[in-house]
Design a binder for these strands. Structure first.
Lengths: 174, 174
DNA sequence: AAATTCTATTGATTTAAATCAATTAAAATT
DNA sequence: AATTTTAATTGATTTAAATCAATAGAATTT
């Protein structure tokens, strides 16, 4: 554990500060010790799309940029004051060499992320606005409570107005 | 290469035959030498949802079921007569032990699949029916040409009627 | 505390895609 | 080749969600 820690760079971010800006190359894979971050991008029409939330114990990066040293299309930003442990590509390789458990851990993380993304695709393609919101709340109550509503809407591919109406409907029903 | 081949079980599937049935445990990761397969599931309302296509040189499995020995929610079926090389969990582990390149290759595959899924999420959440169809055709022309149109519709989360109209619109424009 | 910015709600209207229904076209099976 | 099954198209209508617009409510900042 002590050995492991030497590979990481601690970093604090204040709310609204960024770990990665669109167009830059993502050189870190960030483990979140405290706080919450999001990644997002802005499309040609100027609309913002929320790609990922990440809370304590999760990792966040632009995997495509991080792995291939390509320019990122995403921005990663803290939604609360946060404490991170940063891993550079080099440190990650070194960790995987020296601690086999870590390679296994990374593979498991990626597998879980892949499976979670598969579920998100199914949700995006087949569920109604109400189902999307309820299912997200069940799967990640910590996130839904903690984040502005319009960001949840963006994550689900809904407008803020639609999500507001969906919430009203749900509250009337119960 | 010769060593590598001994780990695989060759298998031929005729069109419409299945590699995996919903409810079963997925014990194979299948490499496609020839042909094309799809994975899909049927929801509570009886609607079929196409999860994945896979052609020559690709892999197909229910990763969740394969990795955790859980019951699959997907069915995997050949859309043409196909030739596969099957890898059991045990053979996969052995291959990764004995041929380090193979572990690296598997990790790269998973990374690419993750990144592709991320793109599919963005598409599903933000694009119009027409954009989805055009972008899919650009990314995977081989698949769009080779597969019944209603399956493309299902993959994109559209009804067959909508896809038919989208195609008509595109043909009128050009 | 006042002002500004950000966030959520509500109403009216539009729009993209789904649904329902019928018909035509193509493919597979006998 | 004839029949059956499967696939694609087209039309009419409905519906879920987006858009446009205004207002109200919170949270920050000065």
């Amino acid at each position: 554990m002590e050995l492991c820690k030497t590979f990481f760079i601690p970093k604090k971010l204040r709310k609204k500060q960024t770990l990665l800006l669109e167009g830059d190359i993502c050189i870190y894979n960030a483990f979140i010790e405290k706080g919450i971050l999001r990644s997002f991008y802005i499309d040609e029409k100027g609309n913002e799309h929320l790609v990922q939330f990440a809370i304590e114990g999760w990792w966040i990066t632009d995997l495509s940029s991080f792995l291939t040293n390509s320019h990122s299309i995403y921005t990663i930003e803290a939604l609360e004051d946060s404490e991170l442990l940063l891993l550079t590509t080099a440190a990650r390789e070194a960790l995987m060499d020296q601690i086999p458990m870590f390679e296994r851990y990374q593979r498991l993380l990626l597998q879980n992320a892949y499976i979670a993304n598969q579920a998100r695709i199914n949700s995006a393609l087949t569920e109604t606005a109400e189902e999307k919101y309820i299912n997200l709340g069940n799967a990640y109550p910590g996130i839904v409570k903690r984040v502005p509503q319009h960001m949840i809407a963006s994550y689900l591919g809904l407008t803020p107005e639609t999500l507001s109406r969906v919430r009203k409907q749900i509250s009337i029903k119960s």
